Computed example of a mutant assay.
Amino acid sequence: MTRLKLSDIADEKPVRLTIELPARLHRELLAYAAAVNGGDAAGAPTVERLIPPMLERFITSDRAFAKAKRGQAG
């Protein structure tokens, strides 16, 4: 089985945002949700539940952002 970058989706109190996604990206997110669920779309996490951990993972892995953030702290 393919190792996905996203595996655990935390359940925290959300902040509501409204965004528009291109249809192509939405289809890819649905496919990713099914992959997270072992290939089964039934019972897969919703796109709304996928996006926050994906963004968090992206931000924590961005070295340039981490460096800039450290520079602002001092």
Score class of each variant (00 low, 15 high):
Ala66Arg: 13
Tyr32Val: 05
Thr46Tyr: 06
Gly38Tyr: 09
Val47His: 01
Arg57Val: 00
Arg63Lys: 13
Leu30Thr: 03
Pro22Asn: 10
Lys69Asn: 13
Lys13Asp: 10
Arg70Met: 12
Leu4Arg: 09
Asp11Gln: 09
Asn37Pro: 09
Arg16Gln: 15
Ile19Phe: 05
Arg24Asp: 03
Leu29Phe: 03
Gly39Thr: 06
Tyr32Arg: 10
Lys5Arg: 10
Leu50Trp: 03
Ala31Pro: 06
Pro53Ile: 01
Ala31Phe: 08
Ala68Tyr: 02
Leu29Ile: 03
Glu12Phe: 09
Phe65Leu: 15
Thr2Arg: 15
Arg70Leu: 15
Val36Met: 15
Phe65Thr: 04
Phe65Glu: 06
Pro22His: 08
Ser61Ala: 09
Leu55His: 06
Met54Tyr: 00
Pro14Met: 08
Leu25Pro: 08
Thr46His: 10
Ser7Cys: 12
Ser61Ile: 00
Ala44Leu: 11
Arg57Asp: 04
Pro45Ile: 00
Lys67Asp: 04
Pro45Thr: 01
Thr2Met: 14
Val36Tyr: 10
His26Arg: 15
Ser7Ala: 14
Pro52Arg: 06
Ser7Met: 13
Pro45Asn: 09
Gly39Phe: 12
Arg27Val: 11
Glu20Asn: 12
Leu50Ser: 05
Arg49Ile: 03
Leu30Arg: 11
Leu50Ala: 07
Lys5Gln: 04
Phe65Val: 11
Ala35Lys: 07
Ala42Asp: 05
Ala66Lys: 10
Arg16Val: 12
Leu4Asp: 05
Arg49Asn: 02
Ser61His: 10
Ser61Arg: 13
Ile9Met: 10
Val47Glu: 00
Phe58Cys: 01
Ala68Glu: 13
Ala35Ser: 11
Glu56Gly: 06
Gly39Arg: 12
Leu30Asp: 11
Leu21Glu: 08
Arg70Pro: 03
Ile51Cys: 05
Arg70Gln: 14
Gly38Thr: 07
Gly43Ile: 00
Arg49His: 01
Glu56Asn: 09
Ala34Trp: 01
Leu50Gly: 02
Lys5Cys: 07
Glu20Val: 09
Ala68Pro: 02
Arg70Ile: 06
Val15Arg: 15
Ala35His: 03
Arg63Ala: 15
Pro52Tyr: 05
Ala34Pro: 00
Ile59Asn: 05
Asp11Ala: 14
Glu48Leu: 08
Pro53His: 00
Arg63Ile: 12
Pro14Ala: 13
Arg3Gly: 10
Lys67Thr: 02
Asp40Phe: 08
Tyr32Glu: 04
Ala35Asp: 05
Ala41Ile: 04
Leu6Trp: 04
Pro45Gly: 03
Asn37Lys: 14
Glu12Met: 11
